[in-house]
Amino acid sequence: NKASVVANQLIPINTALTLIMMKAEVVTPMGIPAEEIPKLVGMQVNRAVPLGTTLMPDKVKNYE
C-alpha cells in the first residue's frame, strides 16, 4: 500500500505548504502520493484542510 499526503495540522485556505504541515500515511481513498511532498512545498491550498485530512489534487492550486 502506498502512502498519501495527510495534513499534520489545520492548513488555512491559501496557505503555502511546508514540510512540517504534511505527513505520509496509508489512507483510503488515496490522495496525492507521499513521494510528491517535496514538489508540494510552496504550493498553496485552495481551501482549508483540517488536521488528519488527506490532501487530494483538487485541494492544491496548480497541482498536476
Rank of each mutant, 00 (worst) to 15 (best):
T18D: 05
V49C: 10
T15I: 09
G52S: 04
E36V: 07
R47D: 15
P50Y: 08
V5T: 05
S4L: 02
E64M: 14
A3H: 10
G42H: 03
N46D: 07
L19C: 12
V27W: 06
Q9H: 03
T18R: 09
N46Y: 09
V45Q: 00
L19N: 07
P12Q: 08
V5S: 02
Y63N: 03
Q44T: 13
L51M: 15
E35Q: 12
P29S: 03
P57H: 05
L51F: 13
P38C: 13
I20M: 13
L17M: 11
L40R: 01
E35V: 13
Y63H: 04
Q9F: 08
D58I: 04
E25V: 13
L40C: 06
V49Q: 06
Q9A: 09
I32D: 02
N62Q: 09
T53P: 02
G31S: 01
P38I: 09
V5H: 05
M21H: 08
A48I: 11
G31C: 06
G31V: 00
E25L: 14
V5L: 03
A16K: 13
L10T: 13
I20L: 12
I20N: 12
P50S: 08
E25G: 10
P57S: 06
Y63L: 03
G52W: 05
V41W: 00
L55T: 01
K61L: 11
T15N: 00
I32T: 00
I11N: 04
V5E: 02
Y63W: 13
K59Y: 15
M43I: 05
A7K: 06
G31T: 04
M43Y: 11
Q44P: 00
T53R: 04
M56S: 14
P50I: 08
K39Y: 14
E35P: 06
M21C: 06
A7Q: 02
A24V: 08
T15G: 01
E25M: 15
A24H: 04
L51V: 13
E35K: 11
N1Q: 14
P57D: 04
I20V: 13
K2R: 14
V5K: 00
E25K: 14
N46I: 14
A24E: 08
M43Q: 05
V60A: 02
T54A: 07
P38D: 09
N14C: 14
L40N: 02
A34I: 05
N14P: 00
M22N: 01
K39Q: 12
K39T: 11
K23H: 07
T15E: 07
K61M: 12
E36F: 12
T54K: 01
Q9S: 08
P33A: 09
M30W: 10
K2H: 13
M30V: 12
N14F: 11
M21L: 04
L17K: 00
E35L: 11
V60Q: 02
I11M: 05
I11H: 00
M22T: 03
N8H: 06
Q9C: 15
P12G: 05
I13C: 13
K23N: 07
L10M: 14
V26Y: 14
V49D: 07
M22I: 07
K61T: 11
V60K: 02
T18W: 05
T53I: 07
A24L: 06
I37W: 05
V5G: 02
V26T: 10
T18Q: 10
A7S: 08
V45S: 02
M30L: 12
V5R: 00
K39P: 03
I32H: 04
M21A: 04
G31I: 02
L10A: 12
R47S: 15
N62F: 11
M21G: 02
V60R: 01
I37R: 01
M30T: 11
T18M: 07
N8Q: 11
V6R: 01
P38F: 10
N62K: 07
P33D: 08
V41T: 04
T28F: 14
A16T: 13
K61W: 10
V26K: 09
E36C: 14
M43F: 10
L40W: 02
T28W: 15
K2I: 13
E25H: 09
P57R: 07
M21K: 01
G42Q: 04
Q9E: 09
M56I: 05
I32C: 04
T18K: 10
S4R: 00
M56A: 06
I13Y: 08
Y63C: 06
K23E: 05
V27L: 03
K39C: 15
L10D: 15
V26A: 08
P33M: 06
K61N: 10
P38T: 10
I37T: 03
V27R: 15
V45R: 00
K39W: 13
T18A: 08
N8I: 07
K23C: 09
